[in-house]
Design a protein around this nucleic acid. Structure first.
Ligand code: SF4
Ligand code: SF4
Lengths: 161, 161
DNA sequence: CTTATTATGGATAACATAGGTCTACAATAA
DNA sequence: TTATTGTAGACCTATGTTATCCATAATAAG
């Protein structure tokens, strides 16, 4: 249960992009150099981000990448879901077992759907709840919020001198 | 980013154990049958749970497994950490990159530890925060709480008849 | 004490995924 | 037109997951 390195790379790349929005396009070479990752691998990750509308890419001389929308509208959750996929944290793998009957069907199957959707499995309910908590937190943090904090630190440092 | 099937099995096994605490020991055969998982594989998972003090095991005739502590003291987090390990959700993999300098060291390295521990990286800060949120939720749900809810459902069903 | 029963730990293997490289190709700004 | 830059796919390797089998150790019942 860990985020993959790709997610790490993607986040850092986006922060770099957000940080240098003045000059419009950032090439893969600059990104690769800044992050210390090979161009070939990083370009794969950037392609994924492009396909999901997080960044725009323009080929050709002086081409490169830029954020497709304002940095405060790119959440950590967005990035993670692009790279890690959108499967849920917990997916039941033995719903045909005897166990299942005790936990999920008890009050639902016989009462011919009095309250539809209420027959959720108890284990899944907990796990989906956990997932939603995690996601909510990740939705509240954006690329911009990282940039802001970095700027604050920098300013604070300058004042001290 | 998904929990493994082993975690799924472990949770279900513990719920089964909690559910049949009357008769002291539950053998691997009964568990395996109830969950629909092979004995050999499930026993590996049970061993792990034993090594971490979640269950007790006794070999020999009429042996088997039982919970090592009350079901309300076995949290989802406990189980998940035993099976999935205790690495953190996010582990930085390129702290020697140029990026790193912008985000983590800015105000910390030069001020010879005025506030120790405050020089945390901004990306990690968000991710560790997310992890803590997730863990807090998982700490609040125990094997017992599942059992309770299952019982409540059952009773509610009986009343309806 | 003997024995049938039960859990344990190691070896092994199929399979999937992550992490990474390379190359031919497409797009485009100069 | 062309040099530059991103795209897409094939390909490879290492690692982790899921799973099985077997020899061994422990123990409760007889
Ligand atoms: S109780 Fe829930 S998690 Fe368990 S087998 Fe049924 S659906 Fe799956
Ligand atoms: S900024 Fe944080 S996540 Fe990024 S390289 Fe430095 S320590 Fe790692």
């Amino acid at each position: 249960m860990q985020f993959s390195k790709s997610t790490d790379y993607a986040l850092h790349a986006l922060i770099h992009l957000g940080h240098s929005e003045r000059c419009n396009n950032v090439g893969i070479k600059e990104l690769s150099g800044a992050l210390g990752v090979s161009e070939s691998y990083l370009s794969k990750i950037m392609s994924k981000l492009r396909q999901d509308g997080i960044v725009r890419a323009v080929p050709g001389v002086k081409g490169g990448y830029e954020l497709a929308r304002p940095a405060d509208q790119i959440t950590f959750l967005d990035v993670i879901q692009v790279i890690e996929g959108r499967q849920q944290l917990f997916e039941c793998s033995n719903s045909s077992s005897r166990q299942h009957l005790l936990l999920a069907e008890e009050g639902a199957a016989q009462g011919d759907q009095e309250r539809p959707g209420k027959n959720e499995c108890l284990v899944e309910k907990v796990m989906n709840g956990a997932e939603q908590h995690l996601y909510q937190y990740l939705r509240e943090h954006t690329v911009q919020s990282i940039l802001n904090e970095a700027f604050k630190r920098c300013k604070h440092e300058a004042n001290k001198k």
